[in-house]
């Protein structure tokens, strides 16, 4: 249970609810360089980091850049960090790719199992979705901050 409780998605869940989650997850080990998920693929699994580091990437297909260019978006290196939250919302398609930055251990949860759990325990579902919304709002703030930087650069370059 100690590997799930630090996860922001599961914050506020009771011990029996965390125990129920324990029953639907299993552990995997992934080697450095190996991909966990690929952008655009059906999102059927959620991953919780136990140990290691996972890099999130965004593929850019443009004439300006090399075909294989992957923009580094973030690194997850804290136990409890979550990968593949796209599995929780429609259209259930991964919006980023995730690659192991170093050998890692993760807990893996199938969305179909989690959905069954949420349907059987609405309070659990409500807490989980509230935590997800909070997390996505934080990510939105970070993205807006980044957008501001890009606009400042554009503005400066157009004036020089």
């Amino acid at each position: 249970m100690k590997f799930l409780s630090p996860c922001y998605l599961f914050k506020g869940l009771s011990e029996p609810q965390l125990n129920a989650l324990l029953k639907i997850n299993r552990e995997i080990r992934v080697k450095k360089g190996q991909f966990l998920i690929h952008e655009g693929q059906p999102a059927e699994k959620l991953f919780v980091l136990k140990q290691g580091a996972i890099e999130l990437l965004l593929r850019i297909n443009d004439d300006l850049v090399n075909d294989n260019f992957e923009l580094p978006i973030a690194i997850l290196r804290h136990p409890g960090d979550c990968i593949g939250t796209s599995a929780l919302v429609e259209p259930h398609e991964y919006s980023l790719s995730a690659r192991c930055f170093e050998d890692s251990e993760l807990r893996i949860i199938k969305y179909s199992d989690l959905e069954s759990l949420m349907l059987g325990d609405h309070e659990l579902g409500c807490i989980l979705m509230k935590n997800l919304a909070q997390h996505l709002l934080n990510r939105l703030k970070e993205t807006r901050q980044e957008l501001k930087i890009h606009f400042k650069m554009l503005f400066k370059s157009s004036r020089h």
Binding site: E55, L71, P72, A74, F101, E142, I149, K156, S157
Partner: peptide, 16 residues
Amino acid sequence: AYINSGGIAIIIQILA
């Protein structure tokens, strides 16, 4: 060190 897209933008700003 890990440098993401936002970090790259910051570094480009300094280089400019």
